[in-house]
C-alpha cells in the first residue's frame, strides 16, 4: 500500500499534472486560434488544419517544460489556467462571430 502511495505521489501525479496542463494549453491555443483566424477572414477548414498541425508541438513543448521545471505543479497549473482562459476567449469570440 505504501509503495502505491509513493508511486502515485512521485511518478503518476507529476506526469498527469504536466500532461493535463500541456493538453489544456494546446486545446486553448487551438480553440482561440481557429476562432481568431475565422474572425479575420480565413476559411474554417484552413484554420482548423493549421492549428491542428501546431497543437501537438505546442503540447509537447508544454509537457517537457512543465515536467523538467523545478516548480512542476505551479507551472502545470499555470499552463492549464492559460489554456482554459484561451478556450474561454475562443468560445466568446465564436459567440461574437455567429449571427
Amino acid at each position: 500500500m505504501n509503495r502505491l502511495w509513493y508511486l502515485t505521489r512521485d511518478s503518476i501525479s507529476p506526469l498527469l499534472a504536466a500532461l493535463m496542463g500541456s493538453y489544456l494549453l494546446a486545446w486553448g491555443v487551438t480553440t482561440l486560434g481557429i476562432s481568431a483566424l475565422v474572425a479575420s477572414g480565413v476559411s474554417f477548414h484552413s484554420a482548423e488544419t493549421g492549428l491542428l498541425l501546431l497543437a501537438f508541438p505546442v503540447c509537447l513543448a508544454g509537457f517537457l517544460w512543465a515536467f523538467a521545471s523545478r516548480h512542476r505543479y505551479r507551472l502545470s497549473l499555470m499552463l492549464a489556467a492559460v489554456g482554459s482562459l484561451m478556450t474561454a476567449a475562443g468560445w466568446q469570440l465564436q459567440a461574437l462571430i455567429l449571427p
Binding site: A26, W27, F44, E48, L52, Q94, L98, P99
Partner: peptide, 29 residues
C-alpha cells in the same frame, strides 16, 4: 499519426466547442 486523428479523437475542437462555428462556416462555404 496524431495529426491524422486529431480532429476525430485527440483534439476534437470543431466537433465540440466550436461546432456551431464549424457548421455555420461550412454552410457559408
Amino acid at each position: 499519426g496524431l495529426i491524422i486523428f486529431a480532429s476525430t479523437f485527440y483534439m476534437p475542437v470543431s466537433d465540440t466547442l466550436l461546432k456551431p462555428l464549424h457548421e455555420q462556416q461550412e454552410a457559408l462555404e
